[in-house]
């Protein structure tokens, strides 16, 4: 199992200790969940949700809340004039 490749897909930095742990724990977990192959699922449907409800719609109305807006801004690690400042995407 290519731990570096999965870490890259997950956009996550791992320490050497974590990497060493995952080299053994991930295959053993996958081995454990592999047990599902024993179940015959040829006659059942794979559903993402089991509820009967479909398409719960509501009106898309804007509710202004200065307080909530400020709360969101206050959480920004970096802000400029009430807008979110992000790191450069292009060099």
């Amino acid at each position: 199992m290519d731990i570096d490749r999965i870490a890259k897909l997950a956009k996550i930095a791992l320490s050497e200790e974590e990497k060493a742990d995952f080299e053994t724990s991930l295959p053993s977990i996958l081995d454990y969940v592999g047990k599902l192959e024993e179940v015959d699922t040829s006659k059942v449907e794979a559903k993402a949700y089991l509820t009967d409800s479909v398409n719960a719609f509501r009106a898309d109305e804007i509710e202004e809340s200065a307080e909530e807006r400020q709360g969101v801004i206050d959480n920004f690690p970096s802000e400029s004039g009430g807008a979110l400042q992000v790191p450069a995407v292009f060099e």
Binding site: I6, I12, A13, E18, D21, F22, S25, L26
Partner: peptide, 18 residues
């Protein structure tokens, strides 16, 4: 994302793999 604890990273890794 490296600030997640080891167990969370483990499950993110499993999830990303599968």
């Amino acid at each position: 994302r490296s600030l997640f604890g080891k167990e969370v990273k483990r499950r993110i890794m499993i999830g990303s793999y599968i």
